[in-house]
């Protein structure tokens, strides 16, 4: 109900009190939208209002103060239209994906929302499933990937999956197998560029030293990690180590002229390998450049 607002007589001189009143009013507007259901979610369940005002803000301190993320090559990501971000996956839980989402929203001129493709497990798990959908993510399957890319969205995929985040600390920064190349066919069909992305720092957040397999089986998880602090310190052990991060968006691999190769498994696997190789090379280069881990 748009009630008549009282307009200040001299809008050029906002007083501190007036400012705080505006803030309160903005908050009330938000509250009204949320409590009366007056907002829109897209076909995937993405709720931009909630993502911008509630889901992303608590991640920012982690991004800026704790991991002190440095973004490189943001200009490689187009300001509009579909593109596929492909990155390495590490760190026991998928913090790297969340930090990439912040990087693209806060440190890209177009403030792009990253729409990630998640594992089955995410959408089976209570709370996580609801949160993931609201934050704009969807199940990693060909129809959803193609639909998002061809409607001009920026899509993120971590093809190593659980093999990547769940690998032992001794294998840090060694890329695992890149799935079956499904992400490459999706990009080819939608004719969008693939942006190889290297993330350095996430490996050291939760160094996974071991796996308690029986417990993982019991809980239906892919692994149950042991780190230097978890589970020994209980909830305290869940605090990630404050490693220093670099997220580098690489030069895009253009696919406009390759659409017919989407049906050619050989070409798809070759392109998958190219992308994987470029990320691996970037990781080695960044590791040399990195001055300190923490």
């Amino acid at each position: 109900m748009p009630d008549a607002r009282i307009i200040p007589l001299d809008p050029s001189a906002p007083r501190p009190r007036q400012e705080s009143a505006d803030k309160e009013e903005g908050f009330l507007d938000f509250l009204r939208r949320r409590l009366t259901g007056d907002y829109t979610v897209d076909d995937f369940g993405f709720d931009p209002d909630l993502t911008d005002h509630v889901l992303l803000p608590p991640l920012r301190p982690l991004y800026e103060r704790w991991f002190r993320v440095e973004v490189r090559g943001a200009e490689q990501v187009p300001s509009q239209g579909g593109a596929l971000i492909v990155a390495n996956h590490s760190g026991t839980i998928a913090l790297d994906a969340l930090m990439t989402q912040i990087a693209l929203h806060d440190h890209h001129p177009a403030q792009r929302h990253l729409r990630m493709l998640g594992a089955d497990l995410v959408f089976q798990t209570p709370f996580l499933s609801a949160l993931a959908r609201k934050a704009g993510h969807t199940l990693a399957c060909m129809p959803d990937a193609e639909r998002l890319l061809s409607s001009g969205e920026l899509v993120g995929v971590w093809p190593e999956g659980f093999k990547g985040i769940g690998k032992p600390f001794s294998e840090r920064y060694k890329l695992q197998r890149f799935g079956r190349g499904g992400f490459v066919s999706a990009a080819l069909r939608a004719r969008v560029p693939i942006i190889p992305t290297a993330i350095v720092g996430a490996e050291e957040t939760y160094p996974k030293l071991g796996n308690i397999a029986p417990l993982a089986r019991l809980l239906g998880l892919p692994y149950f990690p042991m780190t230097p602090t978890f589970p020994w310190l209980g909830p305290l052990g869940m605090i990630p180590l404050p490693s220093r991060w670099i997220i580098e968006f690489g030069e895009p691999v253009h696919t406009e002229d390759l659409a017919e190769e989407a049906e050619d498994p050989m070409a798809v696997l070759e392109l998958t390998d190219t992308v994987r190789e470029r990320i691996q090379q970037s990781l080695y280069r960044l590791l040399v450049q990195r001055e300190s881990t923490f």
Binding site: I6, P8, A21
Partner: peptide
């Protein structure tokens, strides 16, 4: 419809508006 919730929020909005106007 969310009439009850809207009513409460309308009240709060009016309160802030009048307070803002009083100080302006």
């Amino acid at each position: 419809g969310p009439g009850f919730v809207s009513g409460i929020l309308d009240g709060a909005t009016r309160l802030i508006a009048t307070r803002g106007a009083a100080h302006a």
